[in-house]
Design a protein around this nucleic acid. Structure first.
Lengths: 212, 212
DNA sequence: CCCAATCTGCCACGACCGTTGTACTTTAGC
DNA sequence: GCTAAAGTACAACGGTCGTGGCAGATTGGG
């Protein structure tokens, strides 16, 4: 049974997400989280065993929420495996980026986890990966494989194709915007996504008639 | 004029690079760096103004070294713009990954900078970007443009093409290996690179004759 | 309304760590 | 070999912060 009042607990989780996302684990202070939540520091220790426990509770909660959101986006945009791929893949990337902005705090925490992967217990890292990224990747892989079966895509390994798609769109945006730290003009965002999807579909090898 | 003896200064820089890379900025202690360098903590404050100053000195030094290494790799592997691209791009990616392993501490520090981009003075971030990534990207962009002029590649925007190449190879490896935290079997490394280069060249759109 | 759980404010302990002062020893160059 | 710069060992200050204790206020269910 969880300790304390659920309302307070939810407020603490939300506030901790904001503070951890903004300041990072090390910089984030229990006092700051308590103030943000409108709660006394003592109450935080009523609900959680300490800073580590609070952090992992926040991450597991937001991980599930984000994974749900992203899998829904995938299902919505790639529901028709016979549809022309360019338009759907561009639209999906746009919404994906929007989700990253909406859950910016979550992704900031995840980046910290990845950076400190060496200092994080391997078991926690593994369970996080299973409930989050692996779930989303499986959904995306599944849809790309369906598109391949329809002849919409030419895919040898659907999982690698999913990786490549995300790298050329989402990761490209992340790199250009310093993971959201530097805001990107909407036009540039669109340009990165469309050129990324074009590269994903067509590649950079000269066409046969070009070499003439 | 730099303070202190150059030998000690070099030892401090090297040790600080190792400790910062291994433990991260926050976790890294001046005492640990001093011990690693075989130097008293007081000597560190003789050479540098403090932890921040030491960190930025380490980063600027290794940034120049890494940028040199990578631009040399680019020049060596893409020296012939008329050569078949697949082989050269795969070989370059392999050596690039090897360089990332060799300078693992540097890249660990860079990742920290990127994560904490919000908390780093914008001027320092900008000069770092100019002397490091921007230099390397310019070199790679230049070579891809040359290949495009030779008809080896079909490129609209050489800089985006350079990004896409790195995303599909280097970034793919980084993501799979948690930035080097989880060692990757050599076979998997090769598979990621070759499939990445194949995607870069050929994309995923069905060939005309496939749709028959 | 009452009681038990919960929450609050405040204080304090203890650990960690960056930084500095000081007195002493070592090193390098003239 | 002398001298000034550089390095060392050690202790201490100061700040931050996680954590817990405690007494009293508050809250919500029976």
């Amino acid at each position: 049974m969880r300790r304390g009042r659920p309302g307070k607990r939810a407020a603490i989780l939300a506030a901790a997400g904001r503070v951890f996302g903004r300041d990072g684990y090390a910089r984030a202070g229990i006092d700051a989280i308590a103030a943000e939540a409108g709660v006394s520091t003592r109450t935080i220790y009523h609900h959680f065993d300490g800073k580590d426990d609070l952090f992992s509770a926040v991450v597991t909660a937001s991980t599930a929420q984000v994974a749900d959101t992203l899998t829904e986006l995938i299902a919505a945009h790639l529901n028709d495996p016979a549809a022309p791929p360019h338009r759907a893949l561009v639209a999906l990337a746009h919404d994906w980026i929007a989700a990253q902005a909406e859950f910016a705090d979550h992704f900031a925490m995840v980046r910290q986890i990845n950076i400190e992967a060496t200092h994080v217990p391997a078991a926690a890292l593994h369970t996080w990966h299973e409930t989050g990224p692996a779930r989303v990747m499986a959904a995306l892989t599944n849809r790309l494989a369906a598109m391949a079966r329809q002849g919409t895509l030419r895919v040898f390994d659907a999982e690698r194709a999913a990786s490549h798609y995300l790298l050329l769109t989402v990761a490209a945006i992340d790199a250009a915007s310093y993971h959201g730290a530097v805001p990107l003009p909407a036009a540039e965002t669109t340009a990165i996504i469309t050129t990324g999807v074009t590269a994903f579909l067509d590649g950079y090898r000269p066409r046969a008639q070009d070499t003439a």
